[in-house]
Amino acid sequence: MSSLGGHLEQLLALQPTMDMYDSYIVTENNPSTLKLKDKYKEIYYLPYISRSSFFSFVFSFVSIFLKSLRLFVKLNPNVIISTGSGCVLPMFILGRIFGKKLIFIETFSRIESKTLTGSFCYYLADVFIVQWKELKKLYPKAIYLGSIY
């Protein structure tokens, strides 16, 4: 699961691995992601998390948490793999509560600094992967695997 843009592009780079398992894609509902329905059978959409103000963020987060809960119950995933950003937090929290395996891949665009989502998911994930060696300084328990591209 991932937010849209580069995070989603990185998740889709894992397609060969996803093809080996029963997999679902969860991303944000956006005009740029709706066309993915034509290519991927199992794709689900969550609303975009607004960060324009604290109030809108809290409202968005609660809404996405409830929608994520319904989706979590429907899909009952064994493993949740995420490339970030905001919309993934509720599903990651649910995964931790229900004892699911959580894998987080910090975005390729971060070489020397943490993302907000990565900072949070670092403590939730069973496996935390970085794509740059430099990030091992910031995430000491992370696994460096190089680029997923």
Rank of each mutant, 00 (worst) to 15 (best):
I49Q: 02
R70F: 10
L94Y: 01
K35D: 11
G95V: 06
C87P: 10
K35Q: 11
K67Q: 12
N78F: 06
V73K: 13
K101W: 02
K39V: 04
L36E: 11
G99T: 13
L89G: 04
L71N: 03
K100L: 07
M91Y: 01
D38K: 14
F92S: 09
P47R: 10
F59E: 10
F55E: 15
V73G: 03
F54S: 08
V73Y: 12
I81D: 01
S53C: 10
I49V: 15
F92Q: 08
G99M: 05
R51V: 13
L94C: 03
R51G: 04
R51A: 06
F104G: 01
S50W: 04
L46T: 02
R70G: 10
L69C: 14
S53V: 13
K37D: 06
S60G: 09
I43H: 04
N76I: 05
C87H: 01
I64Y: 00
S60M: 11
L102E: 00
F72W: 00
L94I: 06
V79K: 08
F92R: 06
L46Q: 05
F72L: 08
K101Q: 14
F104L: 15
I64W: 02
L46E: 02
F72C: 03
D38T: 08
F72E: 01
V73I: 15
Y44Q: 08
R70A: 07
F57H: 01
R51Y: 13
L69Q: 09
Y44W: 05
